[in-house]
Design a protein around this nucleic acid. Structure first.
Lengths: 139, 139
DNA sequence: TTCTACATTATAATAGTTCTAAACTGTTGA
DNA sequence: TCAACAGTTTAGAACTATTATAATGTAGAA
């Protein structure tokens, strides 16, 4: 749980000007004990619920991308018509429930480290992400 | 390498009517010794190179989705502004080169089996996909 | 306080994908 | 073989997520 001055510090430390709108977005994203997944659409809804000020879609996109580039948010690779983001930036993986269209964290401790026994010359590994697709078990 | 009657059989066996357009799409997708990755855009280009008939975008989308649902194509989970598909439906994983925006197969033998030590009640695992993002090694 | 560079905003533009409705064509049954 | 039907193709419009634009606003330094 962070207060405003901590959001300001967080923004400044990553080279972003702490504007009114960005602080509001911080509040929605980080003022919770639990991390969560969201699409831009859902984020805009959360924001408009928690404030009477209107924040434009463009600002939300710009800010989310800035946070993503700074490592404050992670984008989750998944085939969908829209992008999913995660406020949990620690190393972990995901279940994707294809029936409910729902994303669920897999604790890193519940996944054995993934060993890749091959490399691409001149490239370094940036991330290893596991997506486990699940569906209703009708058997 | 399949001939036309084999495409027809392939289409019929999956409940699709073997129309001229679908056979042409089959030729482009499956008439090669190597599997490959593609976006719809790239597929349309390949098709128009190999025939003078024009196949509409809608037909390509419909057919690719039908093949995906039947398991003849796999969709690769990756964050991109467009969907990637794979004609290699065997179990394997991918490198995604973020510098070149290029997808590269990882042979299944080069990835230690991924062990997930947790389950979601009432759900069964449909697939486990590993995406290894790489970038140029400047170190 | 004033100035300047950066932010915000509404809106337009873009691009991938899906929808629609009319024309067309495999397939089935006579 | 052929007519009729149901599924298919098609062009283009519509839709949706995202990005670009350009005018207006504002944070922060002097």
């Amino acid at each position: 749980m962070l207060n405003n001055s901590q959001y300001i510090e967080k923004l400044r430390s990553s080279g972003l000007r702490p504007t009114k709108q960005r602080i509001k977005i911080c509040e929605v994203l980080f003022n919770t004990h639990k991390t969560f997944h969201f699409t831009i659409n859902e984020l805009v809804k959360r924001i408009s619920k928690s404030t009477n000020d209107k924040i434009s879609l463009a600002t939300v996109y710009n800010t989310v991308h800035a946070f993503k580039n700074k490592g404050y948010l992670k984008e989750i690779p998944i085939n969908s018509d829209q992008s999913y983001f995660d406020t949990n930036t620690s190393h972990h993986h995901h279940f994707y429930d294809e029936t409910q269209k729902d994303l669920i964290d897999i604790d890193d401790a519940d996944v054995e480290p993934v060993k890749i026994n091959t490399r691409i010359p001149g490239k370094k590994i940036k991330s290893v992400e596991v997506l486990v697709k699940v569906e209703d078990d009708k058997s």
